[in-house]
């Protein structure tokens, strides 16, 4: 088992929580990435979607810059991961978060903060199937 405490993880988590809090305080919106992203598929140029698109754009750019700045503190990009597994995974993440109206951010971070019963159930649900899936990948030797 690797080190129990991780300062980077904690600081990153606090930043995510701060971002979600500020978005709610300033714009009155829940920082749910799957929802913001899926709403863009409607291709409507509403103020909501423009702000959502800019949120995601800033997220991607700042993430990329941070990644470069962190140098050796972050892992090298993964290589050689099976394409079919990536595609299947992406599709399930898309369908699942749309049906559930939320992902790790909308249900996990924001929903739990709002003490939403639905979000607690959703979080327990995706944690459980996530753990089972990785277990199966390990046992079957896909992950080593």
């Amino acid at each position: 088992m690797s080190a129990f405490f991780d300062a980077y993880a904690l600081v990153g988590g606090l930043l995510i929580g701060l971002s979600a809090t500020l978005l709610l305080l300033l714009n009155g919106r829940i920082a749910g990435i799957s929802g913001i992203c899926a709403n863009l598929l409607s291709l409507s140029y509403s103020g909501k979607n423009i702000r959502g698109a800019l949120f995601l754009l800033a997220m991607i750019l700042a993430g990329g810059i941070t990644y470069q700045l962190m140098g050796d503190a972050v892992a090298m990009p993964r290589e050689g991961f099976p394409v079919w597994l990536l595609a299947l995974s992406g599709f399930l993440v898309g369908v699942g978060t749309r049906l559930a109206n939320g992902c790790t951010s909308g249900h996990g971070v924001c929903g739990l903060g709002r003490r939403s019963w639905r979000s607690l159930m959703a979080t327990l649900c995706f944690m459980t199937t996530g753990i089972l899936t990785v277990l199966i990948l390990r046992i079957s030797g896909v992950l080593v």
Binding site: I33, G96, L132, T133
Partner: peptide, 20 residues
């Protein structure tokens, strides 16, 4: 909600990526 979250978790575990 439960089916959706369950499917999402499977996808998340398969690759290690959630939407953000």
């Amino acid at each position: 909600l439960l089916i959706g979250s369950g499917l999402f978790g499977i996808g998340w575990g398969l690759s290690g990526y959630c939407p953000g």
